[in-house]
């Protein structure tokens, strides 16, 4: 049976891991390659690198960090932030990324989703969407959540999937950094609207929040500060989710190979 995924996210700025509370007040907290290696040992299902400075400051993401990480850590990597062209997608994939997440670039030019999917396969094109509640619906924001767009979230996500996105990374800006739990109403609405995998993001504060996200229809749940500052232990989280009846990888699938390699 396909497992629900737990994805630690490394928010990066200037080559370092940071975590914004509501995208602001950043605390510098570590080397990305070392952090990725730590999450690998703890048994993360995937890792997500988001260059949160990139869109705002108009610069490319740090493919070197991806390459260093992919040389040491053998688990799936998603890279996002400031990727604007199929050429940049190609560079990210060649550096060792498995998936590339597109946010502002897809809003500015939705054709990039189709171009990327045709050239590299839909499975590596992730549409990242930052949304904020607006009455009974959700509105899409661009440029790291700093600029409102005219898009309704559900309409944009359906369009993105139709254009070629193979996965949705959905961030609730209302919940991001609050630790009040994922926006399950939003997750329900999106998972009803599209039939591609959905990664929920924004608001995780407890073990049970992950269960709630999965119950609402998420295929994966992403969190940053929660794991980063050790609030939630990945092994403990897996035990909780197994106890709640969700299919996840067991805390330790097979023993580590130790020093026999390398």
């Amino acid at each position: 049976m396909l497992k629900k995924r737990i994805i630690p996210c490394l928010d990066m700025k200037g080559g370092r891991v940071v975590k914004g509370i509501r995208f602001e007040s950043l605390i510098d907290a570590g080397d990305p390659v070392e952090t990725a290696a730590l999450y690998d040992r703890m048994g993360a299902d995937e890792l997500c690198f988001l260059d949160i400075g990139a869109s705002v400051e108009n610069r490319g993401t740090l493919f070197e960090i991806v390459e260093k990480t992919a040389s040491r850590v053998f688990l799936p990597l998603t890279v996002g932030g400031g990727i604007r062209s199929t050429e940049e997608i190609r560079k990210a994939l060649n550096a060792g990324a498995d998936k590339v997440s597109l946010n502002s670039a897809a809003l500015a030019r939705p054709e990039i989703l189709t171009e990327g999917a045709l050239r590299f396969g839909a499975q590596c094109i992730v549409l990242a969407v930052d949304v904020k509640r607006d009455g009974n619906s959700w509105r899409v924001y661009s440029h790291g959540g700093t600029r409102p767009t005219g898009h309704d979230a559900l309409e944009w996500i359906v369009e993105g999937a139709r254009r070629g996105a193979g996965e949705i990374l959905l961030t609730s800006m209302d919940r991001d950094g609050t630790k009040q739990g994922y926006d399950t109403e939003l997750i329900r609405a999106v998972s009803r609207a599209v039939d591609i995998p959905l990664v929920a993001s924004g608001g995780a504060g407890s073990l049970e929040d992950f269960a709630q996200a999965f119950e609402a229809g998420a295929d994966a749940a992403l969190a940053a500060s929660l794991f980063h500052f050790g609030t939630v232990d990945l092994r403990e989280l897996r035990r909780h989710l197994i106890w709640r009846g969700f299919p996840v990888r067991p805390p330790m699938d097979i023993p580590s190979l130790g020093d026999s390699h390398g």
Binding site: M1, L2, K4, Q123, I196, P197, D219
Partner: peptide, 14 residues
């Protein structure tokens, strides 16, 4: 079949 479950299959499976 995208009518039966999500496609692509992305993730860990036995």
């Amino acid at each position: 079949d995208p009518g039966r479950s999500k496609v692509p299959q992305i993730g860990w499976n036995e």
